[in-house]
Amino acid sequence: MVSLHHYLVLSAILLIIGIYGVLTRRNIIGILMSIEIIFNATNINLVAFNHYCYPRAIWGQGFAIFVITLAAAEAVVGLSLVLAIYRNLKTLYVERINILKG
């Protein structure tokens, strides 16, 4: 029987994978994907809490839908920025993006 704890552990693992990915990936697309994983960890949390703790309400599911929508909006902007930097620099590795510092 799958319980709330299983879902919470899954989402915690996803969160950790996401944070690890953001910190270690060298490619911008990789970082973007890791951020999406963090968003999905949140969604699992919301829906699982909704289902197990507050089965009468639908607020968790509604929230999850908003998270998905806004994550999509953010991804659109992010990918277009990635395109812009690729046109200028011809690379997507973060260690090459280093003109601004100090």
Binding site: I28, I31, V77, G78, L81, V82, A84
Partner: peptide
């Protein structure tokens, strides 16, 4: 572009 991508990430 660099400023934007850093801010975005």
């Amino acid at each position: 572009s660099e400023a934007a991508i850093k801010f975005f990430l």
